[in-house]
Simulated scan of single mutants.
Amino acid sequence: MKGASGTTSLWKLRLQLMKPVTWIPLIWGVLCGAAASGSFTWTPANVAAAMACMVMSGPLLAGYTQTINDYYDREIDAINEPYRPIPSGAISLNQARAQILLLLLAGLAVAYGLDLWAGHDRPVLLLLALGGSLVSYVYSAPPLKLKQNGWLGNYALGASYIALPWWAGQALFGQLTWTTALLTLAYSLAGLGIAVVNDFKSVEGDRALGLQSLPVVFGVERASWISAGMIDLFQLAMVGVLIAIGQHLAAVLLILLVVPQITFQDIWLLRDPVAFDVKYQASAQPFLVLGMLVTALAIGHSSLVTLS
């Protein structure tokens, strides 16, 4: 993801703008939504549809999100990360605009195709794709630029990475209910904590340009505690939900997956989040996403999936 000046390949530069590492949570979110639907079966047609939904959520719409974010953050990145493709001058603004439009249209086309495949009376997936794309735009672009507000911007990011792909996977194979929609929005508050981790490396540029990220507002140390607290608190809230719906084994498994996250928070996040942000995310996030799958499977086996 670094070293844009080290290559002249346009396709490598375009891929750097799309940040493939960020596709993983969305691909996983689709898997969780399919599990939560309670209706997914391992038929070739279902697997192909799930993979198409993952492509829509990850490479296409997450790629769109990352590219448009870099496009509007080029002044900040010139301070924080001047090696990125746009501030380094390795890719032109017109090329970036073309990439944004192509990824958006391709993502919306796949969403509409999936609605046709699923036989939806309403184009649920297309509406989700349009809504997510709009959130991505207002997150990055003026005049709203949600990322200027640490709380609102990070929650929008967390919900986009947890709730939206989950909804897409569940709507594709089953029924997206208000109950599970609200639960995933609550789960997205843990995603807010993860989003804060991405802000530590950008403190200097955010402060210079007046962006009110949580590390800028509260300081790096306090923001690291806020991040850890959000991640842990709302996963433990899901433990309470699992107990309430009678999924006790899943609740125990989720607790066991939260414990190593707390351990890595102590080792990396709370000691020096600026220096160790990548190490922390690499070590702790696998346990968070496994916890999402445990929760999704439990919901899929509970009566929640049948509620409207």
Rank of each mutant, 00 (worst) to 15 (best):
Leu31Tyr: 03
Gly33Pro: 02
Ala34Trp: 05
Ala35Val: 02
Ser37His: 07
Ser37Met: 07
Ser37Gly: 01
Gly38Phe: 13
Gly38Trp: 08
Phe40His: 07
Thr41Gly: 02
Thr41Phe: 13
Trp42Ile: 11
Val47Tyr: 11
Ala50Met: 13
Ala50His: 05
Val55Ser: 12
Val55Asn: 15
Gly58Pro: 14
Pro59Arg: 10
Pro59Asp: 07
Pro59Ser: 15
Leu60Thr: 13
Leu60Pro: 12
Leu61Gly: 06
Ala62Arg: 10
Thr65Glu: 00
Thr65Ile: 06
Gln66Arg: 02
Thr67Trp: 10
Asn69Pro: 04
Asp70Tyr: 02
Tyr71Asp: 09
Asp73Trp: 00
Arg74Lys: 08
Arg74Trp: 09
Glu75Val: 07
Ile76Glu: 09
Ala78His: 06
Asn80Met: 01
Pro82Lys: 01
Tyr83Asn: 08
Tyr83Gln: 14
Tyr83Ile: 09
Arg84Ile: 02
Arg84Gln: 09
Pro87Lys: 03
Ser88Pro: 08
Ala90Thr: 01
Ser92Ile: 01
Ser92Trp: 10
Leu93Pro: 04
Leu93Asn: 09
Gln95Val: 05
Gln99Ile: 11
Leu101Ser: 13
Leu102Ile: 15
Leu103Ala: 13
Leu103Lys: 14
Leu104Gly: 08
Ala109Tyr: 11
Ala109Lys: 14
Ala109His: 11
Val110Glu: 09
Tyr112Lys: 06
Tyr112Asp: 04
Gly113Pro: 00
Gly113Leu: 04
Asp115His: 00
Trp117Gln: 12
Trp117Met: 08
Leu125Gln: 02
Leu127Gln: 02
Leu127Met: 12
Ala129Phe: 09
Leu130Lys: 06
Ser133Asp: 07
